[in-house]
Design a protein around this nucleic acid. Sequence first.
DNA 1: GACGATTTGGACAAGTGTGTCTAAAAATAT
DNA 2: ATATTTTTAGACACACTTGTCCAAATCGTC
Lengths: 219, 219
Amino acid sequence: MTPANAPDIAVARSHSAKRLSIIDAAACVFCREGFAGANIDLIAAEAGVSRQTVYNHHGDKENLLVAVVREITDRINVGVFDTLATFPDKPVDLEADLVAFAVRLNQNCICNRDGKFLRKLLHTEGERYPALFAGWREDGPAKTWAALAARFARLAHAGWLEIDDPDVAARQFLALVNADLQMAMIFGDNLSEEQLRTAATNAVRCFLRAYGKPRPAAI
Amino acid sequence: MTPANAPDIAVARSHSAKRLSIIDAAACVFCREGFAGANIDLIAAEAGVSRQTVYNHHGDKENLLVAVVREITDRINVGVFDTLATFPDKPVDLEADLVAFAVRLNQNCICNRDGKFLRKLLHTEGERYPALFAGWREDGPAKTWAALAARFARLAHAGWLEIDDPDVAARQFLALVNADLQMAMIFGDNLSEEQLRTAATNAVRCFLRAYGKPRPAAI
DNA sequence: GACGATTTGGACAAGTGTGTCTAAAAATAT
DNA sequence: ATATTTTTAGACACACTTGTCCAAATCGTC
């Protein structure tokens, strides 16, 4: 099986490489021009591929959009999961640790390429093709919020925070982290690292004023 | 002049009524389908007008978009201004008054028809036609934030709040108010009044935990 | 009732985009 | 080196849209 497999893998590599290249280019163009305004010739050119190849791989323009959304949401879910794993469960300096976490959240999930794509696609096509994002809606925000809420609940239990409703607190944390970035993100501005840091600091300060304890009881 | 005016007004009324009707329909279709996907025949039909009339009034598809954006941003600015005027400068029950204010903000500026339109147009066309929204960007968010910050600063000065940076606090207040609504708004869900009230209550509670004083020093 | 302006419906040219098809070229595996 | 598969480039039909033009119809005013 192994010798017979090798060719399959090789073919699959080139094949899937093109597939990815097409999806990336399509994501880019869909986001820039909108679904209706997106031109398949342009996507093909941007992917360095002939138009026919695009049709060979994804058949349809609508199908291509589906593939793009699936790919982006998958990547985003991975990024969120990885970043959540870096939550400061055993903080040393709670404020500094939460700020660092918030910065990572912004850099790896919200302000990066995929985050921008997902946000744009959600806003442009979310209302028209709700089914496209139904899967993400269940697997994405809901689980993220719940996971973050669980982390905060543990911090509260350990005496670092005073929280009534961890779910609400988690959503508020995320809202505060984005408070200063919304406008820039809408217009596609590139955010400097310092801006990210300032935004995160403002957010965490506010969050800790609301939910922090004067002095941690444990550790 | 008055008799000579009457016809003009009458004509103008019918004229401007059609103009508005066209702009409303165009806003609707642009938001649903995106600029490229918007069909002028559809806009005309939805406005109850012949296609030629659309061209008579606005000349161009792009011109029509400009008119739509101008109209929507104007209306939004008025709504924000009016709502800001209802800020509880002399609160009786600070939490209740701020909650009521937040609910008004959501109902009159953010979750209403125009708010939805502006949000959608910003996301779909903001990056491609930044000039379209340049005027709003200066007259809208910046002034709103400043005005709200001034109100909070006065509350702080009167002893109700403890705020370092009123500008940051104002942005955070708005971010908190929207924390629970983002997802629903993206998918165009209609929000019940109870949802708005709950969201506002959560937001104000968090805001006051962060910036409220244990007991107001003055009335 | 007649006038002027606006609106209407339809036809029209021109351009653009999708999706299919074909034969030639390239790449890969045997 | 050869056979199989993928990719390419181009042509193609078809549908759709934009923006214009025009004559008939409608509306409100005098």
